[in-house]
């Protein structure tokens, strides 16, 4: 099992060759990242936290989400509770949001930062979410109390 340095193939699909025919306007097509990003409660929560702060560590995020799900203060989150969220973020939700261009994730530092599609996702979230996920939003936007 050689340690292959994967040169991260950059598939830049520039749809410049598209016919100018009846394609919907770009801003409509670009709703896809919004729906994909917000299609899971943990990803919605993560996006709410990005409204609060544009940069997070994976561990802090996992702690915050676990606290919200179990309805306890952050300092009362157990190791197992945090780990369950951490694993699902690392193996599912972070790569998904990175795929959608909402965040970038630095594997070495475990820092999460907003990326090019973050703004439209967060704008949509603010518009649609307040009445549906008000507790989630309030909790996510509260400060870490450690």
């Amino acid at each position: 099992m050689a340690d292959e340095s994967d040169p991260d193939e950059d598939v830049s699909s520039d749809a410049s060759a598209s016919p100018e025919a009846q394609l919907p306007p770009p801003e409509v097509l670009e709703l896809d990242p919004v729906y994909e990003a917000l299609g899971h409660p943990r990803r919605r929560y993560l996006c709410y936290t990005l409204l609060e702060d544009a940069e997070w560590s994976l561990t802090d995020l996992a702690t915050k989400i676990a606290a919200w799900e179990h309805d306890v203060p952050e300092h009362a989150v157990t190791r197992d509770q945090r780990q369950e969220v951490y694993i699902s973020l690392y193996h599912a939700h972070i790569p998904k949001l990175a795929d959608e261009g909402v965040i970038t994730f630095d594997e070495a530092t475990e820092r999460i930062e907003t990326a090019e599609h973050a703004e439209q996702v967060l704008t949509a979230l603010e518009g649609m979410g307040a009445s549906l996920d008000v507790n989630q939003e309030v909790h996510a936007r509260s400060d870490m109390n450690e």
């Binding site: 943990r42 179990h70 780990q83 369950e84 694993i87 699902s88 193996h91 599912a92 790569p95 998904k96």
Partner: peptide, 29 residues
């Protein structure tokens, strides 16, 4: 509360006899 992703990762970690946190570098995704 646990996700299917987590259950799979935990099972693979059990098979490797490592902590789930050590399963790095290749997200299940």
């Amino acid at each position: 509360t646990g996700e299917l992703t987590t259950a799979i990762v935990y099972a693979i970690a059990d098979a490797q006899e490592v902590s789930p946190n050590e399963l790095r570098g290749r997200p299940l995704y």
